[in-house]
């Protein structure tokens, strides 16, 4: 192999990455690694005026495994994420600008976003009206539609992973857990999706699941937007399940075919399903209907993305607002 990589040097102590991106500050941290705000200085010298607008990007540095022996070249989940982001170009999916590799860690350059949905959701100063919620949910469904059309399940749909741009456009990010679901019959892991957004079939340990798990997460987000908090906030797997069943009713063979055959199936004290109109007083029938359709326990009875987009809730007045009308001023 040729061994001439003059650009390689230590990171993140150096402010400059591959001679092009200048690090400004750290803006986020997660299980995957950390995110930095960078400035693109490639054209700075050639720019005619010194005041030309600066270009900013976000760089995601993928974390290395703690054990040195466990290093398996470029991380497999990183490759997955790069693969998916390169393939999909959509308004509601975060665009990947550049990828590079320095000293065993991979860096992904992406568009810089203003905020994420969780900040909007949990903010105490912002009022979310029905048009706002319609706008947010529609954007989530458009993104999901594009993913499912390409045979991809996101598998980690939470408000933290839905970024919002300056203009209020919602973008999906963090595809480290996503995978293709078409045409291979290999079992899937149950260790996916943040617990509070996890679908009941995963909690019951199903080895084969489909895009319906994303729909359930979207349902949890819609509930969260109405509640301005987390809809199902369990402390552990069992608690999470009992919280879901408290509202949706306990599953049985009649309501969910094949549930008793799932690997981790446990019986719960029987509770009847509750109406969302009692839980959320003041919401109209269509919204309750949509919420119910998203959170159905049986994955085969859950709505598909198409059905969600064409749901009567979105056709009724008041119409969904434009993305740039979302209340973005108070959050940074």
């Amino acid at each position: 192999m040729e061994k001439n990589n003059p650009e390689e040097f230590k990171v993140p102590f150096s402010p400059l990455l591959i001679g092009r991106y200048k690090m400004i500050k750290k803006i986020g941290k997660g299980s995957y690694g950390s995110v930095y705000k960078v400035e693109d200085i490639k054209d700075r010298k050639t720019a005619t005026t010194p005041d030309s607008p600066k270009k900013y990007f976000a760089v995601k540095k993928m974390k290395l495994p703690a054990n040195r022996l466990k290093i398996q070249g470029i991380d497999f989940t990183t490759l997955r994420e790069i693969n998916i982001l390169q393939e999909i170009k959509h308004e509601n999916i975060i665009p990947l600008v550049d990828v590079f590799h320095i000293n065993r860690s991979t860096f992904m350059v992406m568009e810089l976003m203003k905020s994420d949905l969780s900040k909007l959701m949990f903010s105490r100063t912002i009022t979310l009206t029905i048009p706002h919620i319609k706008c947010i949910m529609l954007q989530i469904f458009y993104g999901l539609k594009e993913l499912h059309k390409n045979w991809i399940i996101h598998r980690d749909l939470t408000p933290n992973n839905l970024l919002i741009s300056e203009d209020g456009v919602l973008k999906f990010s963090d595809f480290g857990l996503s995978r293709f679901f078409a045409s291979n019959n290999r079992p899937m892991t149950q260790n996916v999706v943040t617990l509070h957004y996890r679908a009941p079939e995963i909690l019951f340990g199903a080895n084969y699941y489909g895009p319906q798990i994303d729909i359930f997460s979207a349902g949890c987000i819609l509930g969260g937007l109405l509640l301005r908090g987390t809809l199902f906030c369990g402390r552990n797997d069992i608690d999470q399940m009992s919280q879901i069943f408290k509202i949706m009713g306990t599953p049985s063979e009649e309501t969910w075919e094949g549930v008793t055959n799932l690997p981790h199936y446990v019986e719960f004290e029987e509770t009847p399903p509750q109406s969302f109109r009692i839980l959320f007083p003041g919401i109209d029938e269509d919204l309750a209907n949509l919420l119910e359709g998203l959170l159905v326990l049986d994955p085969n009875k859950r709505l598909t993305v198409e059905q969600c987009i064409n749901h009567p809730f979105f056709n009724k007045s008041p119409d969904s607002c434009d993305p740039d009308e979302l209340p973005m001023d108070d959050i940074s």
């Binding site: 192999m1 040729e2 990589n5 070249g73 470029i74 490759l79 790069i82 693969n83 390169q86 393939e87 990828v99 590079f100 590799h101």
Partner: peptide, 14 residues
């Protein structure tokens, strides 16, 4: 070698 190959192929491996 893997790292170098990735760089040459521009990470487009689909």
């Amino acid at each position: 070698a893997e790292k170098y190959m990735m760089k040459v192929l521009g990470f487009s491996l689909k």
